[in-house]
């Protein structure tokens, strides 16, 4: 499983002049995003990294269709995004599984929501196996560990075979070991499926380890500061000189991107 993922012609996301203004808690308008332009190649793995308030989650929610764009437009394979669609999957920071459904029912939820479950009753089991949870299908979310819940959450999003999968700090709440484990899992699933992956993370190493491209963002207003392409072969060695060089380069950008905050804040 080396080299580039499977060639794919679908899953191209194009962001054209997107902006969004929020009202903050005091009611003052706050510019979360300003004039963002970006093309995401089909089947690529792109990470957004940047300080809090740089609009990376906002942008993901816009692509998912959970929020509406104020200006500009986002297209998926040429179609303008309007509202949510199962073609654009979303994995949340907390696994966000439905607590009243078993793990298997959670994974099957997408099929049931789309009313196609009757035609593919074995598919949830297949996805349970894919994420190594075949023995935990009957358990409820509160009975499994955070890492397992996040695997289930991944399977739940992937079962709809989305063209794009958004990952909103999916590993942020996990311990370091589980985290590295799941990073490899993500990589494996991506190479297996060729889904376009868009990751939001605070973890520079995670971004370098996984992505083809890293979009470094800056805050107030949220905008793209720099784009870093990564050409290293998978699996990547976290202690390789190039890895370390990239890390310090991106950290430097981030330090510069946030105006007054200390470096540790982003780690």
């Amino acid at each position: 499983m080396m080299g580039n993922p499977v060639e794919k012609i679908t899953g191209a996301v194009s962001i054209r002049g997107v902006g969004r203004v929020y009202a903050d808690s005091a009611g003052n308008p706050m510019e979360a995003l300003r004039d963002v332009h970006l093309d995401i190649a089909p089947g690529s793995f792109v990470s957004f990294i940047g300080p809090s308030g740089c609009g990376k989650t906002t942008l993901m929610r816009l692509i998912a269709g959970l929020d509406e764009t104020a200006s500009g437009e986002i297209t998926l394979d040429g179609k303008v995004i309007d509202g949510t669609h199962y073609e654009r999957g979303y994995v949340f920071q907390q696994a966000n599984l439905f607590p009243w459904m078993s793990i298997r029912q959670n994974i099957a939820a997408g099929l049931k929501a789309r009313k196609v479950y009757r035609d593919c009753r074995d598919k949830p089991d297949e996805y349970l196996r894919m994420v190594g949870l075949e023995d935990f299908g009957r358990m409820y979310p509160h009975q499994v560990s955070g890492g397992m819940a996040q695997r289930a959450s991944l399977a739940r999003a992937l079962i709809n075979e989305p063209k794009v999968l958004m990952l909103d700090e999916p590993l942020g709440a996990l311990d370091a070991f589980t985290r590295m484990n799941l990073q490899d899992e993500l990589l494996r699933l991506w190479q297996l499926r060729g889904t376009t992956m868009i990751l939001v993370t605070h973890d520079v190493d995670e971004a370098i380890y996984l992505s083809d491209r890293i979009i470094v963002m800056s805050a107030r207003p949220g905008s793209i500061k720099e784009i870093v392409d990564i050409d290293m072969e998978h699996p990547r060695d976290r202690s390789a000189p190039e890895f370390i060089r990239l890390r310090s380069r991106i950290l430097e950008m981030l330090h510069f991107a946030g105006t007054s905050r200390s470096l540790e804040y982003y780690l």
Partner: peptide, 15 residues
Amino acid sequence: TYFEAARTLGADERY
């Protein structure tokens, strides 16, 4: 967030 998750999975209002 549960509603949001369901919507990204393709849920209609009935679901």
